[in-house]
């Protein structure tokens, strides 16, 4: 499935994403430390870095996804890369990057957990419970990984909508992305889901069923993006 050319794309895009994420994590960590040391609001425990960064990380990848069609795709075709290699390369880079975005907060969270034992923080940190609906770091990591990747593809869906079909149809793609967010919430945030037209049957009883649902949604997004980028004319 992946050619040498796709790997070339994946390497370049992944490096670019890592470069941007260094800024993102630096700022996020600074805000978190300000919250821990100065704006901790009293003796009640506050969330560790993993929980603190989850929402921002998803939004960050959504933004990266939105930038994808305009930043990467045209650049690739201009450098003689086919749409197919560009698509698979970007998808591979996004998967690797989602893994990176999962591992880094988890590692910082783990470090905080160790430091908390040494009592260096002025407030108690809730670093053990990293994901509300499931237990354990592995489940939390899988959840974050799938969420981040879903947000990236949702962003990419919006950008290809605007890139290929311009403004009015672009709004339609925003609406599609809201359906994706709704389904994602339905799967991962029981009690906080936004699709009131679907019967609510909590999935936390079976974590792997949730994962399966999330993976299925990602596959649909992946196929949709391939179809939308397959023959797209490049803007000049």
């Amino acid at each position: 499935m992946t050619s040498t050319r796709s790997m070339k794309v994946a390497t370049a895009v992944f490096k670019e994403m890592i470069r941007w994420s260094l800024w993102f994590f630096s700022i996020l960590l600074a805000i978190h430390l300000i919250r821990v040391f100065w704006l901790n609001g009293g003796p009640a425990p506050i969330e560790g870095f993993f929980t603190f960064s989850q929402y921002s990380t998803s939004i960050f990848t959504l933004v990266l996804g939105i930038m994808t069609a305009y930043t990467f795709m045209g650049r690739h075709i201009q450098q003689g890369v086919s749409r197919r290699d560009s698509f698979f390369g970007i998808s591979l880079a996004a998967t690797g990057f989602a893994l990176f975005l999962t591992v880094v907060p988890l590692a910082i969270n783990g470090l905080q957990h160790l430091l908390a034992k040494a009592s260096i923080f002025p407030v108690a940190l809730d670093t053990a419970v990293v994901f509300e609906s499931t237990a354990g770091a592995a489940a939390a990591a899988i959840g974050l990984f799938l969420n981040v990747l879903t947000y990236f593809f949702a962003g990419w869906l919006i950008s290809i909508g605007y890139y290929r079909f311009r403004w009015i149809a672009g709004f339609g793609f925003i609406a599609l992305s809201f359906i994706v967010f709704g389904l994602n919430d339905y799967l991962w945030k029981p009690g906080n889901y936004t699709l009131d037209w679907l019967p609510y049957e909590p999935f936390e009883m079976d974590f792997w069923l949730t994962v399966l649902g999330s993976v299925a949604m990602l596959l649909v997004l992946f196929l949709a993006m391939r179809l939308l980028t397959k023959r797209v004319p490049i803007k000049m």
Partner: peptide, 27 residues
């Protein structure tokens, strides 16, 4: 340059179609 497809007809380089042909596009 394979930035878009022709509505009709063919564009080729050394006898092979260009559009979405990775070997030709990189040339």
């Amino acid at each position: 340059a394979a930035f878009r497809e022709p509505t009709a007809g063919e564009v080729s380089v050394d006898g092979a179609f260009v559009f979405e042909n990775p070997e030709k596009m990189e040339q």
